[in-house]
Simulated assay, not measured.
Amino acid sequence: MASQILLLTTLLAITCSLVVAFEPSPLQDFYVANATSLVLRVNGLPCLESKLATAEHFFFSGLHIPRNTSNPVGGKVTPVNVAQIPGLNTLGISLARIDYAPMGVIQPHTHPRATEILTVLKGKLSVGFVTSSPENKLISKVLKKGDVFVFPVGLDHHQQNLGSETAIALSSLSSQNPEVYIISN
């Protein structure tokens, strides 16, 4: 009797761990954000019926356009998220173009919901992040064109153009809404 209870308990534990580890598939392929829809809300956004989706819901043009960096920090971020591409809703990704004036910075900030992968397209950048307690260690590197650096989710990080010419980077984020909190100016 004791062995049967042990066997039943073991099977139940295995079954429960499989259920907890299971990640269900989405109910449909995509949920295009649509401010005028009253039918369905996913991720807090009203959604278009999928049969009404077009290529325009999954498209953005303009990342090739240089941005104005004549501001106090000398940096400009051009986001491409669900606000620009409604088809990104529920897909868990976004990106941004970052333009840097000579010696321009993207001041220390954090994304509480996303890991960021930064790819340098032009110029030379000093980048880094600070690890969590207890060490609070700075991990930094100088990047040049074609280099890639990862900023783990939620950690304070920064970027600075080290060159005398403009620099450009592409930032990919693991959330449709990574949020950004500026640590300091």
Results as ranks from 00 to 15, higher is better:
128 G>D: 01
144 K>R: 14
157 H>C: 06
23 E>A: 13
150 V>Y: 03
177 N>S: 13
4 Q>M: 13
109 H>C: 07
4 Q>H: 13
159 Q>M: 12
120 V>H: 02
33 A>V: 04
104 G>K: 08
184 S>K: 15
120 V>R: 09
118 L>D: 04
22 F>K: 13
97 R>Y: 06
69 T>A: 07
81 N>V: 11
136 N>Q: 08
182 I>L: 15
97 R>M: 15
152 P>F: 03
11 L>M: 08
143 L>E: 04
4 Q>F: 09
64 H>Y: 06
131 T>L: 00
57 H>W: 03
3 S>M: 08
41 R>L: 09
75 G>I: 09
165 E>H: 12
168 I>C: 10
127 V>H: 05
155 L>R: 11
185 N>S: 11
134 P>C: 03
36 T>G: 02
150 V>R: 12
115 T>Y: 05
43 N>A: 11
43 N>S: 12
86 P>I: 06
102 P>E: 01
125 L>S: 05
16 C>T: 15
154 G>T: 09
104 G>S: 03
173 L>F: 15
147 D>V: 04
137 K>A: 00
1 M>Y: 11
134 P>M: 02
141 K>F: 00
97 R>W: 06
28 Q>D: 03
77 V>I: 15
28 Q>H: 02
84 Q>A: 10
34 N>G: 01
66 P>T: 05
4 Q>A: 14
2 A>F: 03
9 T>Q: 14
85 I>K: 12
138 L>A: 05
93 I>W: 03
53 A>I: 11
168 I>A: 11
48 L>F: 07
38 L>W: 06
148 V>H: 07
62 G>C: 05
15 T>R: 14
116 E>P: 00
78 T>M: 09
95 L>E: 02
29 D>V: 09
124 K>Y: 02
91 L>F: 04
83 A>S: 14
71 N>C: 05
13 A>H: 11
126 S>M: 06
100 Y>T: 05
58 F>R: 09
148 V>K: 09
91 L>N: 04
60 F>L: 03
125 L>E: 02
148 V>N: 10
131 T>Q: 00
19 V>N: 03
100 Y>F: 15
18 L>G: 15
88 L>E: 00
81 N>M: 11
49 E>D: 14
102 P>D: 04
36 T>S: 12
180 V>I: 15
65 I>G: 01
172 S>H: 08
153 V>P: 01
113 R>T: 08
91 L>V: 02
33 A>E: 05
53 A>H: 07
74 G>E: 07
12 L>H: 11
148 V>E: 03
163 G>P: 00
64 H>F: 06
77 V>L: 14
49 E>H: 14
154 G>F: 04
52 L>D: 12
26 P>M: 03
